[in-house]
Simulated scan of single mutants.
Amino acid sequence: MSLFIGLMSGTSLDGVDGVLVDFWAGAARTMSAAYVPFPDDLRAELLALQAASPNELEREALAANRLAQLYAQCVADILAPTDMKAADVRAVGVHGQTIRHRPELGFTRQTNNPALLAELCGIDVIADFRSRDIAAGGQGAPLVPAFHQALFAQQGKTRVLANIGGIANISILKGDNNATGFDTGPGNVLMDAWIARHQGKPYDDNGAWAASGTPIQPLLQAMLQDPYFLLPPPKSTGRDLFHMDWLQRHLSHYPDARPQDVQATLLQLTAQSLADAITTHAPRTEAVYLCGGGAYNSVLMQAIENKLGQNVKVASTDALGVPPNRMEALAFAWLAFRFNERQAGNLPAVTGAKGERVLGALYPR
């Protein structure tokens, strides 16, 4: 067996997803999975750290310690129902929590304390996957297309895997070892922030609130004119761009807009920017498979399907044998596996790096 654990806490700031994967003989067999939600106060602190704030160095370090404890809990929960022990696992691949992503300035920052995690779980930890790609001139994101290409490309067909977390990104798999991909724009980040402000809920369950509203078309068209959507790939983005201040600037022209209509517009923004990216860069796509939290929003899924047209199949990654909420954790288990083999984890055509690089840094147990 060749066992690795992958841990992922994404831009949506909801919690930690983890999987135990066996990569023996080139396969990727998920053996166990767990989810640990963020406490409300930690979620609030991680959200606050997205922007410059007082005493942020100390606060980030303390948040990193708490994250490491949650990661360790997730590792324990993953192993508990199995016959496996910590010594059976070669490494834990952990992404950390992104609080800054500024590749144009040459850096990205994922809050984490991998040394503490190695101490707590007694397993080698591999972390800091993005900075090596950025050092080589890349965006450091998205990293999942290399994983998607390795496991889900189908010879002679073009398919897209779309991850809709806080930010949405796509992997375009052409079946010829020529994958591309990039961040398309906001996924759930603006919808989550808007419903939190108006209803105190962390997310719009199944898009029900958005479905109760009517999209404001001029607002949608104005938001779609943001320069990011017009940039050619490689490109990546995050909360550094798409945040509540960005939304408020657009809403200043619509002071009487109903909150549910704004939510409906934000859902259409995610769907339209994703569909536009696919039709522009993958016009021969036969199928689109959705993962991340957005895959559980049937209103959003239907909106994407409507925009892509009846000739494109739209489904969740359940159809590929991977539950949508496990895909990214599985990807970071794979990246840890690649590091262990000293094999490249990036795709220069995706990130813009000067070449293939081994990604990650090792923190021995």
Results as ranks from 00 to 15, higher is better:
Val262Thr: 07
Ala333Cys: 09
Gln50Arg: 15
Ala52Cys: 09
Thr280Val: 09
Phe229Thr: 06
Leu190His: 06
Lys201Ala: 10
Asp14Pro: 00
Ala329Leu: 01
Leu67Ala: 04
Ala353Leu: 12
Leu190Thr: 08
Gln50Asp: 04
His281Arg: 04
Gly187Tyr: 13
Val92Thr: 03
Ala210Leu: 00
Pro114Ser: 00
Thr265Leu: 00
Glu45Ser: 00
Arg284Gln: 13
Cys291Thr: 00
Gln50Cys: 11
Asn206Pro: 00
Glu356Ser: 05
Ile99Trp: 02
Thr82Trp: 10
Lys201Leu: 14
Gly140Asp: 12
Gly309Lys: 14
Asp192Ala: 08
Lys85Val: 08
Arg130Val: 14
Tyr35Glu: 02
Tyr35Asp: 03
Ala275Asp: 08
Pro227Met: 04
Ile134Asp: 10
Leu143Glu: 01
Ala329Ser: 09
Asp176His: 07
Ala179Arg: 05
Ala91Glu: 12
Ala34Gln: 01
Ala275Pro: 10
Leu46Thr: 06
Leu362Arg: 07
Lys313Val: 11
Gly156Ser: 01
Pro145Tyr: 12
Ala34His: 01
Trp334Lys: 01
Leu290Glu: 03
His250Met: 04
Gly165Gln: 08
Gln272Trp: 02
Leu359Gly: 03
Ser273Glu: 12
Phe23Lys: 00
Cys74Leu: 01
Leu330Cys: 05
Leu42Ala: 10
Gln73Ile: 02
Leu230Met: 13
Leu62Gln: 15
Ser252His: 14
Arg258Gln: 15
Leu251Asp: 03
Gly187Asp: 12
Leu269Glu: 08
Asn169Ala: 13
Leu79Asp: 03
Met31Ile: 07
Ala295Phe: 14
Gly138Asp: 05
Pro37Asp: 06
Asn113Val: 00
Ala27Gln: 13
Ala282Asp: 10
Gly293His: 06
Glu341Arg: 15
Tyr254Lys: 13
Arg365Pro: 02
Thr285Asn: 07
Leu330Asn: 03
Gln225Pro: 01
Leu308Asn: 11
Gln139Cys: 09
Arg249Gln: 14
Ala315His: 08
Leu79Tyr: 05
Ala162His: 14
Cys121Gly: 05
Gln139Leu: 12
Ser9Asp: 09
Gly165Arg: 03
Gln260Asn: 15
Trp24Cys: 01
Leu362Asn: 05
Lys307Ile: 00
Ala315Met: 11
Ile78Ser: 06
Ala87Ser: 10
Asn311Asp: 14
Gly93Met: 07
Asn112Lys: 09
Pro232Val: 04
Thr317Arg: 03
Ala271Thr: 06
Leu13Thr: 02
Phe129Val: 09
Val314His: 09
Pro81Val: 05
Ala72Met: 07
Asn206Thr: 12
Asp128Trp: 11
Thr279Asp: 03
Pro202Ile: 04
Asn346Arg: 11
Leu290Phe: 07
Pro145Val: 10
Glu356Ile: 01
Lys313Phe: 04
Ala87Pro: 00
Ser9Arg: 08
Phe152His: 09
Met301Thr: 14
Ala264Pro: 04
Ala76Leu: 08
Trp334Ser: 10
Ser273Gln: 14
Ala162Glu: 10
Ser298Ile: 09
Ala115Thr: 08
Thr237Phe: 01
His95Ser: 00
Leu219Gln: 13
Pro114Ala: 03
Arg249Asn: 14
Ala150Pro: 00
Pro114Met: 00
Cys291Tyr: 11
Gln139Phe: 12
Leu42Phe: 11
